[in-house]
Simulated assay, not measured.
Amino acid sequence: MTTKHPADPAVLAELTRLRDSIDNIDAAVVHMLAERFKCTQQVGHLKAQHHLPPADPARESRQITRLRELAENAKLDPAFAEKFLTFIIAEVIRHHEQIADTTGGEESRTA
């Protein structure tokens, strides 16, 4: 059985400060992702209007390469950054497919 030691108040204060910073960063990440998805939704509508495919493998590859380089420069694991972007890209493509399915070319006739 382990004995609980009362935490040093200075340690608790530092822990709280760091956790507050993490919470603020998490909020910023969520807001940045929301802005990113607003832009990609506009891309999806533009693609649907002009009958372009939902996915662009060449761009996706360039973006992954770019993000891996940014991650390396930021001292972030590039493999993690790639997984993160790949997840986001998959969600964007899913949205683009939904837009194309629901639009059915209507926007190109009304635009």
Rank of each mutant, 00 (worst) to 15 (best):
T3E: 07
K4Y: 00
H5M: 14
P6R: 09
A10R: 04
L12Q: 12
L12D: 13
A13C: 00
L15I: 08
T16F: 07
R17N: 10
R17C: 10
L18G: 06
R19C: 00
D20N: 01
D20A: 10
I22G: 01
N24T: 13
I25Q: 15
D26I: 05
A27T: 12
V29M: 14
V30A: 15
H31W: 11
M32K: 15
M32Y: 15
L33S: 03
R36H: 01
R36T: 01
K38G: 02
Q42M: 00
L46F: 02
H50S: 03
H50N: 12
H51G: 14
P53C: 08
P54Y: 08
A55T: 11
A58M: 15
A58F: 11
R59I: 14
R59P: 10
R62T: 13
T65S: 14
T65R: 14
L67M: 04
E69R: 11
E69T: 11
L70Q: 04
A71F: 01
E72M: 09
N73W: 09
A74T: 00
A74R: 06
K75L: 03
K83Q: 12
F87C: 12
I89S: 05
A90R: 10
A90Q: 04
V92W: 06
V92F: 10
I93L: 05
I93W: 02
R94Q: 04
H96D: 05
H96Q: 08
Q98Y: 09
A100E: 03
D101I: 05
T102P: 05
E107H: 07
R109P: 05
T110N: 14
T110C: 14
T110R: 15
